[in-house]
Every structure is written in C-alpha cells, then in structure tokens.
Computed example of a mutant assay.
Amino acid sequence: MRYIVGYTDTPSGEDALNLAVRLARSMDRGLDIVIVLRSAARAALVPVDVGYEKFLHRAAEDWLHHALAFVPRDMDVRGHIVYADSFAQGLLDASRDLEARMIVVGAARGGLLGRFTVGSVANALLHSAVVPVALAPEGSVSEIGLDGITRVTCAVGTRTGAKELLDAGILAARAAKVPLRLVSLVALDSDGVDTPPDVRARAEEHAAETVAYAAEHLPDDVDVTVLTASGNRIEDAVATLDWDPGEVVFVGSSRLGRPKQLFLGTTAAKMLRELPVPMIVVPRDSVLTVED
C-alpha cells in the first residue's frame, strides 16, 4: 500500500512532505510525491505559450528532485508530475491511478499558534476524497525532523462511520507499533451545554466496549488507553487533552457525506481549529478493516 503527498515548493508543501515521510516510515508504506501543474488544455481564445509551458515543467522537475532528495534513501519513494484543472483534482486523480490509501497535504498558512486553517485545496479534498486525508498544520512537523509518529489518538463516537474510524486507528497503531489513545466523544455528541448523567454513563460504557475491541485487535506490546473528553464546547474539550509533538489524530467523516467519501462534519471542524498536531480524516464506509 502507498501514500501520496501533494507537494509544492512552499512552507506548506514542506510540512506536508515531512508528515508524509513520517507516516510512510512509521507504517512501512511506499510514498508517491505528486506535483500538480495546470492542464495544458486551454480555451481556444487563450494562446499556448510553449516556452512558458517548458519552463514550468522544468521548474517542477527541479522541485521534484529537491523533494526526492529530502526523503531517506531507505524508503520506497517515487515522483510524479501530473496535469489537472486544479491541484485538488490532480491529487484525486493520482490517488485513483496510483491506488493510494492516503492523501497528505499541508493546511493553509496563518493559523494561530500553528493551528489549522483549511485552505481551498484541503477543503476540496475533505469534500471529495474516497481515501483518508492527512492534514499537516503549519510548522507542527518540521520542528521534530524525520522521526516516526509516537502515538495515535482516535476520536470515536457512536455515529455512522465510528467503526471504520476505529479500525483505521487500530491499523495505524498496529503498523507503527505505537500506543493507541481513544478519546470518547459520546458526551460531546449532545448539543447541551451540560452533560446529562445518562449521557455520561453511556459514554463510559461505550468507552469500555471500544477499548476492549481495540485491545482484541492489537499486539500485546501495543498499549491502548481510553478517556472521555468533556467541556462546554468541543474546542474546550480538545484543549484539555495533552498532545505529544509526534502524534496524529484520526477523526471520522460527517454522516452527511456520501458513502465512501469524506465530508468534514461539525465536530471534526471544531476540533481542527484547536489541534496542534496532524489530523487524518477517515471516510465513513471505509474499505479498510482490522482484518487487512
């Protein structure tokens, strides 16, 4: 299985490449670095400047060589230059053609304290991709070099897609041989400011069932813990959690999304604004299972 990273010769592109290397190394996956150029097909009224097209392609080749040189030599990595009407469409086409299991991109720059600001590319992917999309917040990975991930946190609830999300988190922790932390969002599924006692009890029962399922599918040397996030707002609950600089967070796609496609829901979108670490959004009805 392979991952692809949408690379640009920008700080955001460097963040994405750094995260992609960490994920691929940790989970023993091949990596495809993809640079997307605007399609050469243009309206008939717009003349094609052959010289400019050649210059742009040569520049892209230089960027690709730079990116490939960044990747450790022991990794299985390939480079691609593709043409598409948009950067997001090029990545979606590449993920299909290369049979990728994950797309990695950088978030938009300018988020407060390294937090996320979803740009147009990430937003398009989060509404269209059929495979998980990993988002690298500004500067969150460049400071810790090329080390692998240190922990997987999986934000699980009870809504549609929760099973697929949990399986994805288990697979990642199992492949990377790192601890799995399960954060129960059941108490936050309610729109009420205060968590009613019955909701809290349901959250604790769900947490116990979830950790038992995860432990059954993890090797003995991989730890699994669970906690219930609480707070008057989702952002407050996320802010109370501790975060390893090297961890990643798995969240689920909205139930409003079409089957096997992403659609960033309200809970994940609110988490996204507070998280200081990379987020991986998993489509509901994902084809990955813990038996893979």
Rank of each mutant, 00 (worst) to 15 (best):
R73I: 12
I149R: 00
A168G: 03
G252T: 04
R284V: 06
T153L: 14
V193F: 02
I33W: 01
T289L: 05
T160F: 14
Y83Q: 11
A60C: 08
L64W: 11
H127C: 04
V238W: 04
A155G: 05
V141L: 09
G6D: 05
V131M: 07
H57F: 06
E274K: 14
T150V: 03
R42T: 09
Q89M: 13
R202C: 00
A175H: 09
Q89L: 15
T150I: 02
G257L: 06
R38D: 15
R101V: 12
R58M: 00
V282L: 08
R101I: 09
K54V: 00
G265P: 01
V133H: 02
I33G: 02
V156Q: 05
G192V: 12
E61L: 15
R174E: 08
G169T: 11
E235F: 04
F55P: 00
W243N: 03
D76R: 13
V222E: 00
A44Q: 08
E274V: 15
L64C: 11
L275S: 08
L19N: 03
V290D: 11
S39D: 14
L262Y: 09
V152D: 03
A100K: 05
A237I: 01
T153K: 10
E216A: 15
L218Y: 09
R202N: 01
S95E: 14
L218V: 11
G30P: 05
T289N: 12
A16W: 01
E14C: 11
L275R: 01
Y3F: 15
A69I: 10
D97E: 14
D28Y: 12
S190C: 08
A88W: 05
G148H: 01
A208T: 12
G110E: 07
F116E: 00
E61Q: 15
V152L: 03
F87E: 13
F250V: 04
A16Y: 02
R174C: 06
K260P: 03
A134Y: 14
G90P: 07
P197W: 01
A239V: 07
G51S: 00
L146C: 09
G106Q: 07
D147A: 15
G114Q: 05
S12E: 11
A108H: 13
A43N: 13
S120Q: 10
Y213P: 04
K260Y: 09
T153Q: 12
T153C: 13
D244H: 15
T240C: 07
T289G: 14
D242A: 12
G51I: 00
A41M: 10
V224F: 02
L126Q: 02
V226Y: 06
R115W: 06
G13Y: 07
L112T: 12
V224A: 07
F263W: 13
A239L: 12
A44T: 04
V130R: 15
V48A: 00
L264T: 10
A229T: 01
R273I: 04
D62R: 15
V121K: 03
G246A: 07
M102W: 05
V249R: 04
R22W: 04
R255H: 09
A214Y: 09
H206N: 10
V238H: 03
A67D: 13
V21G: 03
V46A: 09
S190M: 09
K177A: 10
